[in-house]
C-alpha cells in the first residue's frame, strides 16, 4: 500500500506559512507500506489534518492524494468502510472511546468487525502495556494515559497495511511510551505495515526510519 501526495494541502493551512514543510504542497510525496514515519511538529501545523485526510474523514484539501494509484476522492462508502476494517487502522488524538463500555469491550467492538484476534491475544497485548488489571473497568473512569493505551490496543486488533497514530503517547511517561511504541512497531512488523506517527515533542523514538517536518 502506497500513499502518494501531489501538492496536497488542507484548506485551513493555506493561511499559514508552510514554506519549510516537507509535506504540504510537496510535488510528490510517497508514504510506503513497511516503513515507519514520524511526523514532528508543534500544535496547529496540521498533524491531525494529515491523518484525517489519509483516513478519509476530511476532504477539504487542495491537491491530490492517491492510494495505490487511485485518487482517494473516488472511493465509495463501502470502499472506505472496507479499508478501515482491513487495511487502515488509526489511533485518534481524541481517542473516540465509548465511555460506557469497559476497556475490553471497546477493544472487542473493533475486533468483532473482523474477528482478527482471539480474546487470549487481546489479553497478551493488554499485558504488554500493563493494562490487564483495567480491562474490565469502564473506559470513562480510566485516566487519560490509560485510555490512550486502550485506544492503541483497539487499533492493533485489526488487520492493517498502515497504522495512523495521532499523538498517541502524549499522556504517558517515558517508560510506558517506549513499551507502547515497541508494541506498535512489533505489530507493524508482523503485518509488514507502514506506520505514520505524529508527535508533539521530539521524544527520541528508536527505529523510526523517516522523519518528516510538517
Amino acid at each position: 500500500m502506497i500513499f502518494r501526495f501531489e501538492k496536497m494541502i488542507p484548506l485551513p493551512m493555506l493561511e499559514q506559512d508552510t514554506a519549510d514543510s516537507e509535506i504540504w504542497e510537496a510535488e510528490s510525496l510517497l508514504l510506503e507500506q513497511g516503513k515507519s514515519y514520524v511526523i514532528e511538529a508543534p500544535s496547529g501545523r496540521g498533524k491531525t489534518s494529515l491523518l484525517s485526510v489519509m483516513y478519509g474523514i476530511r476532504t477539504d484539501y487542495r491537491g491530490k492524494v492517491f492510494l495505490d494509484n487511485s485518487n482517494i476522492t473516488s472511493f465509495t462508502w463501502r470502499e472506505w468502510s472496507v479499508l478501515r476494517k482491513k487495511r487502515l487502522s488509526i489511533i485518534f488524538q481524541g481517542l473516540e472511546l465509548f465511555d460506557d463500555l469497559t476497556a475490553l469491550e471497546n477493544i472487542q467492538l473493533k475486533n468483532n468487525i473482523t474477528g482478527h484476534v482471539s480474546n487470549e491475544k487481546i489479553g497478551e497485548l493488554a499485558d504488554a502495556l500493563d493494562m490487564d488489571p483495567y480491562l474490565h473497568r469502564k473506559a470513562g473512569i480510566l485516566s487519560f494515559g490509560q485510555q490512550q493505551r486502550v485506544a492503541i490496543l483497539r487499533a492493533l486488533v485489526q488487520p492493517f497495511d498502515f497504522l495512523l497514530a495521532d499523538e498517541c503517547f502524549s499522556h504517558m511517561d517515558r517508560e510506558n511510551t517506549l513499551k507502547a511504541y515497541q508494541l506498535i512497531q512489533q505489530e507493524c512488523e508482523v503485518r509488514n505495515a507502514g506506520l505514520v506517527l505524529t508527535s508533539l515533542n521530539e521524544t527520541e523514538l528508536p527505529g523510526a526510519e523517516v522523519r518528516l517536518k510538517l
Binding site: 483516513y55 479499508l83 478501515r84 476494517k85 488509526i90 473516540e96 465509548f98 467492538l109 468487525i113
Partner: peptide
C-alpha cells in the same frame, strides 16, 4: 456522536 464514532472506526452506516 456515537454513530459518527462508529463510522470512524470502520462501521458502514
Amino acid at each position: 456522536d456515537k454513530i459518527r464514532r462508529l463510522h470512524k472506526l470502520g462501521f458502514h452506516y
